[in-house]
Structures are given as C-alpha cells and as structure tokens.
C-alpha cells in the first residue's frame, strides 16, 4: 500500500505491506535509525515517537495507520544545530548510558513538557513508566528532565513574546 507520512516536517512516502510496523517504516524505509526496537510485547518504549503530537510505541502501530499523520522522531529534536534542552539535559545529567532507550525517553519527555512545563519528580516518573531503561535506574533521567524544564519554559516565553 502507498502511504504518505510527514516525518520531522518532511513529507515522505513509501510502499508498505499492511503488516509493516511504523517502527520499521521509520527505520528501514526512511533510514532514521534513532528509533529502536527492544521488545515484542509493547513493553519497553524504545520505539516511542510522536504521532500527531502524541507519544506512541511505534512497534504497535501499523505503518498504514500512520498514513496522513505527522510523525516526529528523535532526529527531529535538534533545531538549526542546537540541541533541544532535553538532549542537553540528558547529556549534562548523565541521563543515559548505553543510549538504546534514550530516543524513546526523549520523545516521551518532550511530550510531557509540552503538556506540563513544570513537572514534579513523581509526575516525571509516572510519565516515563512506559519506557524501560536497564542502565540508569532512571534517577538521572529525572534530573535531566528537571534540567530541561525551565529551559523549555523560557524558550516558550520567548516564542510567545516574538509571536506577539
């Protein structure tokens, strides 16, 4: 089936079998390998991407279901050579070790900060509870999100001011 998807702002299209999972569309067809696959039971969240702004496990969405949607992956976070505050936060706070869960964590926490720009530790821990990490014990991931939150708020204020 022919499908069209906007990935990180770029319109893309592909021919896929119905059984192709969104994660593999992104990885194999569009060569964006930052989206990882770590399990087969919708448990680990390494494949998390935003679909029309909502974080979903892309191993549990069919590529054909993404037809006509806007998908954002980890590769879409950096802007004009500037790392997203969350990427900076993960780096500064040692919020990653092997890096395999990191893209999924980044996408989930990106959506969290969109909805709640000042989350508590409990809120952050709940928000990332669909993303498994085997290396960090999550503690520095929480710190990383706390590092990023004020930067995201600031950026948002600036954008609003410019917009006005």
């Amino acid at each position: 089936m022919r499908i069209a998807v906007t990935i990180n702002g770029k319109p893309m299209s592909a021919d896929v079998e119905p059984r192709t999972l969104l994660a593999y569309l992104i990885r194999d067809e569009f060569n964006l390998t930052g989206t990882h696959v770590g399990c087969d039971t919708t448990s680990c969240g390494a494949c998390t991407v935003l679909m029309d702004g909502t974080p979903v496990k892309s191993c549990t969405v069919l590529a054909v279901q993404a037809d006509g949607t806007e998908v954002m992956t980890v590769e879409g976070l950096e802007h004009n050579g500037q790392l997203h505050p969350l990427q900076q936060g993960f780096w500064e706070s040692h919020g990653l070790q092997c890096g395999f869960c990191t893209p999924g964590m980044l996408m989930t926490t990106y959506a969290l900060l969109q909805r709640n720009p000042d989350p508590s530790e409990t809120t952050i821990r709940r928000a990332i509870s669909g993303n498994l990490c085997r290396c960090t014990g999550y503690q520095n991931i929480v710190t990383a999100v706390q590092y990023a939150a004020p930067l995201v708020r600031e950026a948002r204020t600036l954008t609003t001011e410019v917009g006005e």
């Binding site: 390998t33 990882h36 696959v37 890096g99």
Partner: peptide, 21 residues
C-alpha cells in the same frame, strides 16, 4: 567530565547492530 559518546547518542545517532544495512 561530560561523556563524549553522548554527542551522538542524544541525537539518536548511535550505530547499533540492527542499524547496519
């Protein structure tokens, strides 16, 4: 010291086995 490997890993540019085609 900040980790050097993170420059690629936070960008989703790690190069894992299954990324090789």
């Amino acid at each position: 010291i900040k980790r050097k490997e993170d420059a690629r890993l936070v960008r989703g540019q790690g190069h894992y086995l299954d990324d090789i085609k």
